Computed example of a mutant assay.
Amino acid sequence: MQQREVMSQLIEQDHIAQQDIETAMFVSQVYPPAPNWYGFLSKLLLCFGALAIACGVIFFVAANWQDMSRLIKFVLLQLLVVAPIIIYLRSKTHTLLSQISLTSAFILLGALMAYFGQTYQTGADPWQLFFNWALLGLPWVIISRFSPLWMMFLALLNLSLVLYHDALGTLLPFGINRDESLFWCLLSLNYLSLIMWELCRVNYAWLNQSWAGRLLAIATIFCANALALMAIFSYNTSWLGGAVWVFLMVMTYVVYRKIRPDLFMLALGCLSGVVIVVGWSANILKHIDDGNMFILLFLLTIGLTSAAAVWLKKLMKEFQ
């Protein structure tokens, strides 16, 4: 992206002749050369092939499920888990093939555990299935060194927390309500994961993928916004949610403006700020006429988003 931006500036300033633009694009690798396309297509076909095999296996099992005995079902599901592990052991470590093999084994482990729980009634609560699935698959997640598999692992933990609160109520021993407890737990999990990702991405190249950190940031900001809005609109929640939101906004500015510039993270912080300011204003203006209130909120939203866009555009030029 940085090369593309530099080339765009050079073309706009007429530093490159019109007839030499295409050549310059290939030389600067803004247009990927043929070997890059070959590698991309190989990885794409490998991923699609693994997905097709997984879907074929699922359809085969589903079509013949009623005709199989319990023993055959267990043997088949266990073989489906073992097969990707064999492929992983016979392939080079930390290659895309080995990583996809472990990812397939991790997914199929969930199917095996689901059938095991259904057969022997090991747990009536769905959160146990997803938590145990994540726990048993953790060794594969660690040795895979594959960001998508780590994101899948964290998604299972988030889902386990949601289902736990839905089934058993609050997890925190502070006497707070279920919804607030859920968002506090999700915020803690995702924010700690984001911190660990930021600390480790410098030393581990396989973690240096912006999309993973941005997913964690989106989950963190969503939970922080929910807690802040609860503090604004509900009298049964504490002001601590708003204080934590302010802290996260300050940290977002310091880290992604001063330490490691990232325009996406700052844009996410601006969006969060617009939501909270508009929500706080709506709570203040709730006693006036609905029509006037919506007009004022509309004007406030337009003003805040315009100011954020101007600031982000200025930062984009600065980061270049």
Results as ranks from 00 to 15, higher is better:
residue 202 V to Q: 13
residue 303 G to I: 02
residue 216 L to T: 06
residue 280 W to S: 11
residue 259 I to N: 08
residue 81 V to A: 11
residue 296 L to C: 05
residue 274 V to K: 03
residue 67 D to R: 10
residue 156 L to A: 15
residue 230 M to N: 10
residue 54 A to S: 15
residue 239 W to A: 13
residue 219 A to P: 00
residue 165 H to I: 01
residue 183 F to K: 01
residue 206 W to S: 04
residue 307 A to N: 03
residue 107 I to G: 07
residue 223 C to R: 02
residue 208 N to I: 02
residue 79 L to D: 11
residue 49 G to H: 07
residue 310 V to E: 03
residue 33 P to M: 07
residue 253 Y to G: 02
residue 23 T to V: 05
residue 162 V to P: 00
residue 270 C to A: 15
residue 291 G to K: 02
residue 20 D to A: 14
residue 154 L to C: 00
residue 65 W to G: 04
residue 295 I to L: 13
residue 265 M to Q: 06
residue 290 D to W: 05
residue 45 L to C: 12
residue 163 L to A: 08
residue 187 L to V: 04
residue 115 Y to T: 05
residue 142 I to F: 12
residue 35 P to C: 06
residue 261 P to L: 05
residue 56 G to M: 09
residue 290 D to P: 12
residue 13 Q to I: 02
residue 206 W to H: 07
residue 140 W to C: 08
residue 181 S to H: 05
residue 214 R to H: 14
residue 244 V to K: 03
residue 134 A to T: 06
residue 173 P to T: 08
residue 270 C to N: 09
residue 69 S to D: 15
residue 244 V to M: 14
residue 84 P to V: 10
residue 53 I to R: 02
residue 161 L to W: 04
residue 84 P to Y: 10
residue 91 S to W: 07
residue 180 E to I: 08
residue 155 A to K: 00
residue 206 W to T: 03
residue 273 G to K: 02
residue 250 V to Y: 13
residue 89 L to T: 08
residue 298 F to S: 13
residue 26 F to Q: 11
residue 225 N to Q: 12
residue 265 M to Y: 09
residue 44 L to Q: 11
residue 146 F to E: 02
residue 76 L to E: 08
residue 128 Q to C: 00
residue 234 S to C: 04
residue 173 P to G: 13
residue 92 K to Y: 02
residue 176 I to W: 09
residue 75 V to S: 09
residue 32 P to T: 06
residue 189 L to I: 09
residue 266 L to V: 13
residue 318 E to Y: 11
residue 252 T to V: 07
residue 241 G to C: 09
residue 185 C to Y: 01
residue 212 A to W: 09
residue 85 I to V: 15
residue 105 A to T: 05
residue 168 L to H: 14
residue 192 L to S: 12
residue 259 I to Q: 14
residue 86 I to A: 14
residue 57 V to I: 14
residue 246 V to P: 01
residue 179 D to H: 08
residue 214 R to Q: 12
